[in-house]
């Protein structure tokens, strides 16, 4: 179906979480967005609202964003009760306003988790994810002195599966969607990538132990297998990663000496 070439502006009501900084209380504040084109991305809509706010002498709404093509993992809005909004398999920056209707009320909140404290408005501190990676999200090889790349044949199936896990962008939508604010999909994606590949085997079991221990210390909740993380993950990372992590963790802690 061809769309009309000239699109009507949409009028929207936004309820946006505003919070000056980590130490103050926040609240939802209502704004009118009267000139929204369906071709805008969600973040471009916020840009326009912000330009208006600045012109009025108000403080613009702060939100994390960078690449605006769905790969950097910076954008992180909870839109009408869902991380990255109503569509599946995309980030907020890939969401376009044509997914909404004229007159809609849109509630925009930051990721909510004890481990992701709000810095300002919709910006949260997701450094907990980095610290989990510091604990063991790597294969310990120094630069240089590695074998020729083709010395390690890897079945295409395994390589593809590892890549599926490795596509995680670290946005935190899994934590945001989970009713328990659990980070297990994120952690298990990295654990899985390394556990699947032959290069990851030497540290396979220490890695899962170290990463899970750090995850627990960060104050994330526990997985109750609701599957919300998988459903909301912009990269559609599978729950089977969590199963793999569990398996490796139990193997490491209960059976390995």
């Amino acid at each position: 179906m061809m769309r009309l070439s000239i699109l009507e502006d949409m009028k929207l009501t936004l309820k946006v979480w505003r919070q000056k900084n980590a130490n103050t209380k926040g609240q939802l504040v209502t704004y009118k967005a009267d000139h929204v084109s369906p071709d805008m991305s969600f973040l471009e809509m916020l840009d326009v609202v912000n330009e208006d706010l600045i012109h009025k002498g108000d403080e613009p709404i702060h939100f994390d964003h960078d690449c605006r093509e769905g790969i950097c993992g910076a954008c992180s809005l909870h839109i009408n009760g869902r991380p990255h909004g109503p569509k599946q398999g995309i980030t907020t920056c890939q969401l376009h306003m044509r997914s909404f209707n004229d007159g809609d009320v849109i509630v925009i909140e930051p990721w909510r988790a004890a481990a992701f404290p709000v810095i300002r408005d919709l910006v949260t501190d997701r450094s907990a994810f980095d610290r989990i990676q510091h604990a063991g999200g790597y294969i310990s090889v120094n630069t240089g002195g590695v074998p020729d790349a083709n010395c390690i044949p890897i079945s295409k199936v395994v390589a593809d599966e590892a890549l599926n896990s490795a596509t995680c962008i670290g946005c935190g939508a899994c934590v945001a969607a989970c009713k328990n604010a659990s980070a297990m999909l994120f952690v298990s994606a990295k654990v899985s990538q390394m556990a699947l590949l032959p290069q990851g085997q030497p540290e396979r079991y220490q890695r899962v132990q170290a990463m899970v221990t750090q995850m627990d210390q960060e104050g994330f909740g526990n997985c109750t297998n609701t599957g919300a993380c998988e459903a909301e993950c912009p990269k559609e990372i599978s729950l089977s990663n969590i199963a793999r992590m569990n398996r490796d963790y139990f193997a490491a802690n209960i059976f390995k000496e």
Binding site: K15, L28, H78, N80, G81, R82, P86, V107, E109, R112, A113, A114, A115, A177, K179, N180, A181, S182, G219, F220, G221, N222, T224, T226, G227, A228, A231, E232
Partner: peptide
Amino acid sequence: KNKKARPIGYAIQHGAANSP
């Protein structure tokens, strides 16, 4: 522990959209 992991809840959480 899970409740503690999210001390401030969402105004709207649309759980039905992503989980049984």
